[in-house]
Design a protein around this nucleic acid. Structure first.
Lengths: 219, 219
DNA sequence: CAAATGCTAGACTAGTCAGTATGACTTCTC
DNA sequence: GAGAAGTCATACTGACTAGTCTAGCATTTG
């Protein structure tokens, strides 16, 4: 026993034309991609063997790039958060009129319902917010806070509407949208309580604009 | 070695005055209470040894009442869901005027932020909604759906307000409230983005009433 | 060529965990 | 008092896991 198997022809492609730095981060990239699939599917309890296998990489290689499981997990979540942050609301939206602006924001937020990675990330961050409070705080401060602040800034600056408390109003809009994502997709509620995105968006837009109109009259 | 320790004086209180059924369910109750504390604190990955210890019961006793870990977990979540459902909105609230009604609903919903068990349950159900979709569906159909339907029924029936889509409006109110709980407590966002409950509630009430008022005028 | 670096497969350590088995103790019922 | 039912502490099995170690292979660099 203990027969060492025939050394599998360890063929590695030449990979010419790539400098050291690129090649250095190549394996790291593969590991993060494998970890993404496995962690998002199975949660933090996923095994390091499964991650290495999914990444197509030896377990030792994982440990040569990341100190331990916690580090890998944190690095992955950081990366994912960065990825989704960059897809936030851009400056050109601010030129839109109030109705179009809110519609657009709502559409962008709800479009993430179709993104398995986003839905799984949401579930993972909320689920592990007990064990990894620093990650959920990162989510709040990097994704939620800037989004709500930008929305509030728009509501405060726009001439067409006036609210007594734009920050709270922004939270209501955001909460209605994110909770829809959580309820329908994260918690699989779309069968038990179906509702089209358009219906929700229409109601939000109407409600906000009515209230913003009223705020102007009473000022 | 392998010295069997002196049989600890297995003193059991007489427990007179309790019939068989009561005594039968006594251990089960202790197990569920221990499981509650441990599962809510550590998630599904908590060990059965830890649960038995927390319940003050032998592990074998746990397995004599529950087939396996999954059964115990499901039974516990079922029970917790029942517990929180019963504390929902009661019939006497329906007599309130629109402003008071919405305030009351909001206060009740947000008061659960102070309940460690509720916050942990929310985190647990969302976090395990990948592994246990049936539990999150139970949460949706037993807690969320009835609540939103009652709220929508009120909004539809009340003479003081009129909405083009009461169901969607109810979802907005519910989403704004629950998301506040998730953001502030479940995800520990209350330090990064503090906001008083009263501010949120005032904005929700104003927004809904303005919109409900407008809906009447345009009909 | 020779050293260095990064990788691979696989064995290994030390520990945990779900679930089962054992044998003894207590209480109730007949 | 005998048997049944429930419980207890403890030990055990088998599987799995995080992380380490070894020894060898491939490529780059000096």
């Amino acid at each position: 026993m203990n027969s060492r198997p025939a050394p599998t022809s360890n063929s590695r492609a030449p990979e010419e034309g790539k400098d050291n730095v690129t090649r250095l981060s190549e394996k790291r990239e593969k590991i993060l991609e494998g970890a993404l699939r496995v962690f998002l599917a199975q949660g933090y309890s996923a095994s390091m063997d499964a991650i290495a296998a999914e990444a197509g990489v030896a377990k030792q290689t994982v440990y040569s790039h990341f100190k331990d499981k916690h580090s890998l997990f944190s690095a992955l979540i950081d990366r994912l958060l960065d990825h989704f942050v960059s897809a936030g609301l851009t400056a050109d939206l601010l030129a839109l009129d109030a109705r179009s602006f809110i519609r657009k924001i709502a559409h962008i937020t709800l479009s993430r319902m179709d993104d398995w990675e986003y839905v799984s990330l949401l579930r993972l961050i909320i689920g592990e917010s007990g064990r990894f409070p620093e990650l959920s705080e990162l989510y709040v401060s990097h994704m939620v806070k800037p989004g709500i602040e930008k929305l509030a800034a728009y509501l405060r600056a726009n001439e067409q509407v006036r609210f007594s408390d734009p920050e709270a109003t922004a939270r209501i809009i955001h909460g209605a949208l994110i909770n829809f994502v959580i309820l329908q997709e994260v918690m699989h509620g779309k069968h038990a309580m179906p509702m089209s995105r358009e219906r929700l968006i229409n109601s939000i837009v109407d409600m906000v604009l009515f209230a913003g109109e009223q705020g102007k009259q009473s000022s």
